[in-house]
Computed example of a mutant assay.
Amino acid sequence: MIRRKLNSTRVISALRKKRCLSKKEIAYICRLSLPTVDSIIRLFLNKGIVKEAGYETSSGGRRPMLYQFNDKIKYAIGVDFEIPELTVLITDLSGSPVNKSASHLPVEAGADRAIQFVGEQIGNLVKNTQLRNEDVVGIGFGAPAFIRNGEITISGKNLPPWRNVPVKRMLEEMTGVPVSVDNDVNLMTLSESHHMKYQDEVLVYLTLRRGTRGDIRMGGGVLLKGEVFHGAHGNAGTLRHAYMNLSKKVNAEEAIEEAIADRDPQEMVEKLKNHLVIPMINMISLFDPDRAVINAGILGESEPLFIQECEEELKRHLPGVFNWDLRLEPARDREFPCAKGAALSILQALFKNPDVFFEKL
């Protein structure tokens, strides 16, 4: 039974990587006998896990049937609990977005009401996508918070002081679907690496996100060989006191626009860099990454200048340590990366464990 599960997992892995394969190709890639592959494919066809994808081109003789993984058999959900914004995303099993919703969180009503609102938005999106909760393998939830056992604690200037909010338990009770909770920037890091197909041993991701009181805050995430590094308690890479108030505007987007209008962009970027470069230096010094990615998209046209200024500052502080082999790049995955990463975290766990995979599918 165990060997059959492992063989079946190898077949699924091959089909997910190559998209369309014949039985002979599957047998070669997975180092399995043709009768074993034939048995697995017949089982998967009956369950709807794989589907026929037409015939392979051939110069003569009988053309072999091609098979592909059915990535629409189940779905994953990703939640970006950004505060004050909420994004809920449904993806197929390849991680490709299927449907999404965006709304404003009722933060002022308290933690319980905010999480209840998330559950309602998930339910509405599932219904609008014409799915059932049974079609969803899991919900990934990302928040600007410290995570412990599925609970979130939010601690930071201009953020609601919520402690030990049982997000995992609350959403599982509301939806009947397994929930995984993680820091928002960890999930953005995972999405960037996945969609850009990076193969780094160590990747550091730094992002600027809008606060709730006209401020900008910076978060960090770390991937080791493509998987999020959580540390001993789930909070590795979390940056403390990495924020900056731009103005008295409550809305951070308006605050950024006001700051650019009121002063030279170079001056604003210089001020931001001076506030945030030390946490960057600490992250890069601690984790010695192959690549550091910066997402400063909220700065609009000033983003390239900000990244350039940060790179020059890092070179001044770290030349002898790295000989500057480090690649510092702008983020390229810009569309709701936290929500996508949250869904991807569910899929990563699903395909990593054969028992979980066969239980869900």
Rank of each mutant, 00 (worst) to 15 (best):
N183V: 07
K100P: 07
L159Y: 15
V136Y: 09
F146I: 03
D182Q: 11
S96V: 13
R169Q: 14
N158C: 06
P178R: 08
L105S: 02
V107R: 08
T91Q: 01
L105M: 11
D135W: 12
I90N: 00
K100A: 06
P166N: 00
G176R: 11
P166W: 04
N128P: 09
S155C: 10
V185L: 03
L89A: 01
S103M: 02
S96K: 15
E120V: 06
Q116L: 06
T129C: 09
A111I: 13
L131E: 01
L131A: 00
K157E: 13
R148Y: 14
D112W: 12
W162I: 02
F146N: 08
T87Y: 14
N124P: 11
A109W: 15
M170Q: 12
N164A: 06
P166K: 00
I90Y: 05
T175N: 12
K157S: 05
V165I: 10
A111R: 13
A143M: 09
I139W: 11
L105V: 07
A111M: 10
M188K: 12
V88K: 09
G140A: 01
N133V: 05
R163E: 15
L187S: 06
D184S: 10
L125V: 05
S103E: 10
P144N: 02
D182I: 01
I147M: 04
I90M: 05
V167Q: 00
G156F: 07
I115L: 01
S96H: 13
A145Q: 11
D182L: 03
P160D: 02
I147W: 08
R113L: 10
I115S: 00
D184W: 05
M174Q: 14
E151G: 00
A114T: 15
V167C: 01
N133R: 11
A145V: 02
M174E: 12
G138E: 08
V181I: 09
Q116A: 04
R163N: 12
T87H: 13
D184I: 05
N164T: 08
K168R: 14
W162R: 03
